[in-house]
Amino acid sequence: MASDDVLLVIDAAGVIVGWSQEARSLFERGADLAVGRPVVELLTAVWDPADAGPDRRSGRTAAVPGLAVKPVTLREGRSGWGIYLLRPEEGRGADTRGHAVLTALFTQSPIGMQVLDPDLRVLRVNTAAAGMSAVEPADVLGGRLGDVVHLSDPEETVAMLHDVLATGEPALDRLVRGRPPNDPAHEDVYSVSVFRLQDADGRVLGVSTAVVDVTVRERALAHARVLNDVRERLGHTLELDTTCRELVDVLVPAFADAAEVDLLDPVVRGEAPPPGPVGPAMPLRRMSFATVDPQRDSLGTGTGPFSFPGAWLQALTDLCPQLITYWPGETHDHHSQASRAQGPHSAIVTPMTLRNGVPGILSLYRSPGRDRFVDQDLDLALEVAARASLHVDNARRYA
């Protein structure tokens, strides 16, 4: 076998999808007994959890030479990982090679991997899993899974783990949400696969988990769904009021806890949108508002954009969306004391632009308990506002 030939291939969930003749010889298992099974489950027989973990003298996991984990492209463009045998290991048995494969996975693989005992206490975590939560592996050994990440729905996650332990049926590609201990303000999304571990006699040893951070992917999918809803639900009427109301109904609660559309007064009266920048003397009219909070009737007070005057003026001046993180007391909210105890709020103020004109402004709001807006949300807000501007202008022309 060439020194750079792949020994076996796993997908993003740690399931074996490729099995070479060399692997068949080394592990004395045919492809029919290997492909489709999680690599950790397959190698349980040659790895004793009691012996796993860092070296007691150095505190580090010993590296076993001869194996490497490298990214590979699977069918249909999916990502996977190849385990390569860097040099032949004559005179070494399957036990040693099993240790080597597991060591490579636990030190080199970017897939987060954890091994839990039947009581769901952490026996081992790999480098990637520790990196996701910025914790030292030694700090979580013997603890619960919640010590690695603060689960948003711990009861549901624990129930999934117990179900795998009881039935032996793996749970594949389940979305689990949690907040890393080093960044509790943001909720991350993980694709988690869970497999039961058992020895040759069928004794249940615990479960292994394969974790991939899919936060960016899920945010992109959520953005795509919002934009698709805007495309499908707006533009079926030429009524200005209806168009503005449909926009906020699409955005709440899918993208925001509250949304508000304010149009420049000339646009409401049927005139062409004025060119930017728009000065503070130009009146605005509130056209629509939607919220998940029935006690709140507006983002601001009265009829003007008083919640974030600086952000409004800036957005109408440079025609760029503004991202704001604020405490309720800063906006004279009569619920400020209670809200401040819950945490900061988040808002996006984005101009509605149409060619060289500015029809108005779109405001979006998120309350505590929901992830604050981030920079990646600004592009979606601007695209939604621009698409809505087309429908607003069609309604204005019709009027």
Rank of each mutant, 00 (worst) to 15 (best):
residue 1 M to A: 02
residue 2 A to F: 04
residue 4 D to S: 02
residue 6 V to R: 03
residue 11 D to C: 06
residue 16 I to Y: 04
residue 25 S to G: 03
residue 44 T to C: 11
residue 53 G to W: 09
residue 55 D to F: 09
residue 66 G to R: 03
residue 69 V to G: 03
residue 75 R to N: 06
residue 80 G to A: 09
residue 81 W to P: 10
residue 82 G to T: 10
residue 82 G to E: 09
residue 86 L to M: 02
residue 89 E to K: 04
residue 93 G to Y: 01
residue 94 A to H: 01
residue 99 H to R: 14
residue 106 F to G: 00
residue 106 F to T: 01
residue 116 L to Q: 07
residue 121 R to F: 02
residue 126 N to Q: 14
residue 129 A to S: 03
residue 130 A to W: 02
residue 135 V to M: 11
residue 143 G to D: 02
residue 145 L to R: 06
residue 148 V to D: 13
residue 148 V to Q: 13
residue 149 V to Y: 05
residue 151 L to P: 01
residue 152 S to P: 04
residue 153 D to I: 07
residue 158 V to G: 08
residue 170 P to V: 02
residue 172 L to S: 00
residue 176 V to G: 06
residue 176 V to A: 08
residue 178 G to Y: 04
residue 182 N to R: 10
residue 184 P to F: 02
residue 185 A to H: 11
residue 187 E to G: 00
residue 188 D to G: 00
residue 188 D to F: 00
residue 192 V to K: 00
residue 200 A to K: 11
residue 205 L to T: 07
residue 213 D to G: 13
residue 221 L to V: 11
residue 223 H to Y: 11
residue 223 H to P: 08
residue 237 T to F: 10
residue 249 D to G: 12
residue 252 V to F: 05
residue 256 A to H: 12
residue 258 A to S: 12
residue 267 V to G: 08
residue 275 P to W: 00
residue 276 G to P: 00
residue 276 G to F: 00
residue 277 P to F: 06
residue 284 L to Q: 14
residue 290 A to P: 05
residue 295 Q to A: 13
residue 299 L to M: 15
residue 303 T to F: 10
residue 305 P to T: 15
residue 306 F to E: 15
residue 308 F to L: 12
residue 309 P to F: 05
residue 309 P to E: 06
residue 309 P to K: 04
residue 309 P to D: 03
residue 315 A to T: 02
residue 322 Q to W: 01
residue 325 T to D: 08
residue 327 W to N: 08
residue 331 T to P: 07
residue 333 D to N: 15
residue 340 R to W: 02
residue 341 A to Y: 00
residue 341 A to G: 04
residue 343 G to S: 09
residue 345 H to Q: 14
residue 347 A to T: 06
residue 350 T to G: 13
residue 354 L to V: 04
residue 355 R to F: 00
residue 357 G to I: 05
residue 360 G to E: 02
residue 362 L to E: 01
residue 368 P to C: 12
residue 371 D to P: 15
residue 373 F to E: 07
residue 383 E to W: 10
residue 383 E to P: 08
residue 390 L to F: 15
residue 392 V to L: 04
residue 398 Y to K: 01
residue 399 A to T: 08
